[in-house]
Design a protein around this nucleic acid. Sequence first.
DNA 1: ACTTTGACCTGTGCGC
DNA 2: TGCGCACAGGTCAAAG
Length: 298
Amino acid sequence: MTFSLPELPEVETIRRGLAPLVEGARIVAITAHRPDLRFALPENLTTLAGQAFVTAGRRGKYLLFQLSSGQTLLSHLGMTGSYRFDRAALSEPSRYHVLEPGKHDHVDFSLSHPVHGEMHLIYSDPRRFGFFELFKDEDQSRFVSSLGVEPLGNAFNAEYLAQRFAARRAPIKAALLDQKIIAGLGNIYVSEALWRAGIAPQTAALALVTKSGAPRKSLERLTKAVRDVLEDAIAAGGSTLRDFKNAEGGGGYFQHSFDVYDREGEPCRTPGCAGRVLRIVQSGRSSFYCPACQSKTG
DNA sequence: ACTTTGACCTGTGCGC
DNA sequence: TGCGCACAGGTCAAAG
């Protein structure tokens, strides 16, 4: 079992696992075991007791828990954040009301659900790159307000990307990682999408746009590749998601295999291609691609 | 306005 | 076996 590297498909898979158990649950108490993760925890986090979770949503890589007060609790998993349920009844006198936290357990949501009963939802995060935010409206959110389009939504299309890429000299790899353009792609799925589209990661983003500002064929392919790779990953995640409800230690998922990511030196999987996967470093991050079938010219 | 780099943080896996 | 070190990647802040 590898660590979760939570990009959009992983966050969506986690959301689908959490939703049936948290939606409708009343918050009995929230206990934070430390004052900060990546950033300081919201000051009034522990005062949410008495509210209920209405929906568990997602935007990009953010989980958005809508509360009965109208507020939204934003949760970002960083690189190593995870949720698990502990079914210990809150009212059992032999139990501590707040569970004895594990080394990397940082936030404990004590919940009471009308159907599923009492449980703890525990946020754990060894590297503490994750963070929380509490806001009333999305335009007040430091994180959500600047996000680009949802890649599985209608606003995501080749014309939109052409407009955003037209003045970008940076490599397409960096442009696809920019959350202000597309919300939800990370290092893994950028490599995967570029491989599917036959575009080398060093290609300047503006090379995918014509002089008149129209998307080139390659950008059309890339748009479809991004959408397809995310949909495939969500489908795979759904099939491997362990059931939060019945799992002893909580839910999770198994990372599936990728076509180029982390396959340095291995054969390219494009039919008929004799190339091997290469690893290069761009902006301090690994990119994996096949130099034989991914073009640098747009 | 755009682009790049460093910092944050800990577990893992490799070479010696 | 143990130690040191490079590496993993999401986001922001700062520098170019």
